[in-house]
Computed example of a mutant assay.
Amino acid sequence: MRVVRVERFGGPEVLEVAEVPPGEAGAGEVVIDVAAAEVLFLDTQIRAGWGQEYFKLDLPFVPGAGVAGVVRAVGEVVDNPLVGRRVIAGTGGVGTYAGGGYAEQAVVPVDEVFPVPDGLDLKIALAALHDGATALEQLTQGQVEAGDRVLVTAAAGSLGGWLIPLLSATGATVIAAARGERKLRYAEELGADRVVDYSLPGWADELSEVDVVFDGAGGAIGQAAYAATRSGGRFLGYGAASGDFTAPDRDDVTTVGIFRPDPAESRELTRRALDELARGKLTPTIGQTFPLAEAAAAHTTIQNRQALGKTLLLP
C-alpha cells in the first residue's frame, strides 16, 4: 500500500510517497481502508521538528492523526460486526501523536473507532474527530453566557467552523479574528457578528474588553488577544499556529491551557460531535482536498495560511 512518510524533519518537501506492506491488526486493533485522512496544523509543526518534547517520533514516520473509511479487518478481542462499517478513527489515544493516517490503510486502536451514522458523509464526519470534540470541550471550559463578548482567533480554521456557530447559538456576541478579506468573509458566513484582521498592526487595540477568548493562534496574536481580555474574563489557549502557546502573566484573568479529558470523556465528546453532524446542527466546511501523493501541497497550503476550514487527503 502507499503511505506518505516524513524521511527527515524539514519543509513540506520532506513528505515522500512510499510503498510498504499492508498493516495487520493486532490484539485490540482494526485495519481501515482509508477514504479520507485529516491534515492538521499540528501535522505541519511535527513534520518540521516542533514538539519533540511532547511527541517523540522516530524517523521515518507516517504523519496523520485521524482517518475516515471502512473497517477491513479486526484483531483479537474486537467485535467482528465492525468489519464493513463506515467509521472515523483516531490513530492514537488522547494526548498522543501516533501518526499513521497518511496511508491507504491505517491500523488503529479499536477504542478510537467511531461508527458513522447512516447518511452522514465520511468526509464531513471526520470533522467530528478532533475539531468537533475540541470545540465542545472548549465551549464547556469557556462558560460562555448570553450577552458575553467572545473573541475567536484563527477563526477561519477548521475549529472556527465549529466554534463560531456554537458560540452564536449561546447568544454571545462573536468577534472573529483572521487574516485577509477571504477569511473574514468566511467567518461572517459562519455567523460572526464582527470580524477583525489580525494581519494589521494594532488589530486588537480597537476591541473593547472581551469576556472570553478562544485562542487557536498563540504567539503575538495570542498575546494581543490576551491583553484584550477584561479583568475577570477567561482566556482559553489551545493552539500555537503563530509560534507558541500564549504565556499567561495576569492574575485577573482565568487562563485555561490545553485540556486533556480522560479517554472515556474524550470518546464521549467525539460521539456528541458526530451526533451534532448527523442531526444537521452544523455542517463543517471541507475547504480543500488533495490526493494522498500531494500531501506536500496540502502542508504548503496550511503553512501559508491559505486554507479555509478542514483540509483532507483522499487516498
Rank of each mutant, 00 (worst) to 15 (best):
A177N: 11
W50Q: 12
G180E: 10
L42T: 05
D262Y: 05
G257L: 07
R47E: 03
A133G: 05
E76V: 11
D251Y: 08
A178S: 10
E181G: 00
L207A: 04
N304R: 14
P165Y: 15
R260F: 04
A187E: 09
E209V: 08
A27H: 07
G100S: 02
T173M: 15
V77K: 14
I175M: 10
R267K: 11
A125L: 05
T301P: 01
A187H: 04
G75W: 14
G202V: 09
I124M: 09
S199H: 06
V196C: 04
E209W: 14
A169V: 09
A278Y: 12
A307W: 02
R234E: 00
D205I: 08
R2K: 13
I286M: 08
P12E: 11
V71L: 06
A27G: 01
G84V: 13
D215W: 11
E206H: 06
V152R: 08
L126D: 08
L274T: 03
T289Y: 07
V77T: 12
A127T: 11
G95C: 12
E38T: 10
P22Y: 14
T300I: 03
G309C: 04
T153Y: 13
Q45W: 11
L151R: 13
T153N: 09
A106C: 06
L282W: 15
V70Y: 03
G280T: 09
N304T: 10
Y102G: 00
I258V: 08
A27Y: 07
T270S: 00
A172D: 03
R182K: 15
A247R: 11
G66F: 04
G171P: 12
F114D: 06
V14Y: 10
P81N: 03
T301Y: 04
V210M: 07
Q223D: 04
L184C: 05
Q105R: 15
A98Q: 12
T255K: 02
E112A: 12
K183L: 06
I286T: 04
V144F: 15
V144M: 06
E294N: 05
L129D: 01
G90K: 15
L200P: 10
W50R: 15
V31C: 06
A35Y: 06
V34P: 15
V3S: 00
P81Q: 04
R305G: 01
I221M: 07
A106T: 03
L57P: 06
I258W: 05
A240H: 07
I175K: 12
A154Q: 11
T229E: 02
A278L: 09
S199C: 08
R5Y: 06
F290D: 00
T254Y: 03
A106F: 13
E112Y: 08
T300P: 00
P284G: 00
P115A: 00
F235Y: 09
A103P: 14
